[in-house]
């Protein structure tokens, strides 16, 4: 993993977790309110204050000019918002890229073959343009050998 921005990433993650924790604490305190009498009230109060602070921290971190947080594709936000796993999104893309890569590789090989065949045929059928064909083959990554083979 790239270390750059890792600090921010870590920090902001921690802060987020704090916020979540605070919220959780509030929920717990709310549900447990009154049972314990006066202390719960103070605890809730402090919890809320804590939440406030945490939020402030998040905000400060996020809005600090130095913070280098990455950009997120909007599709991902929708993904998460709908309660789906963002990793699926990642995986999907990886999958797509992989498949496309393989396909391309195959296609390239096939086309290269086709090119060679076509070039050979053309060289034979239209000897007057053989030079040109050769240049095209060369430019597209083939070799003139093919033509020469056919000539013989």
């Amino acid at each position: 993993m790239a270390p750059i921005g890792q600090v921010d990433q870590q920090a902001i993650e921690g802060q987020l977790k704090d916020v979540i924790q605070d919220l959780y604490q509030i929920m717990v305190q709310v549900s447990a309110y009154d049972l314990a009498g006066r202390p719960t009230r103070d605890v809730l109060e402090s919890n809320i204050k804590q939440l406030h602070r945490s939020l402030q921290k998040v905000h400060t971190t996020a809005s600090s000019p130095g913070a280098s947080l990455p950009h997120i594709p909007p599709e991902l936000i929708q993904y998460v918002d709908n309660g789906r796993n963002p990793d699926i999104y990642t995986r999907e893309f990886v999958e797509l890229a992989r498949r496309g890569n393989q396909l391309m590789k195959g296609k390239m090989a096939a086309y290269a073959d086709f090119r060679d065949v076509l070039a050979g045929e053309m060289g034979r059928a239209l000897p007057e343009i053989r030079e040109d064909v050769g240049r095209v083959v060369e430019a597209t990554g083939g070799s003139r050998e093919i033509l020469k083979e056919e000539e013989d």
């Binding site: 993993m1 790239a2 990433q9 902001i12 993650e13 987020l16 977790k17 916020v19 979540i20 919220l23 947080l69 990455p70 950009h71 997120i72 594709p73 991902l76 936000i77 998460v80 918002d81 963002p86 990793d87 999104y89 990642t90 893309f93 990886v94 890229a97």
Partner: peptide, 21 residues
């Protein structure tokens, strides 16, 4: 906030994913 945390978590990999895209 949990969602935000998830996104943030994920965002560690966002560079790579971006490249993949």
């Amino acid at each position: 906030w949990v969602k935000a945390l998830v996104i943030t978590n994920w965002s560690r990999r966002s560079e790579d994913v971006s490249k993949t895209i």
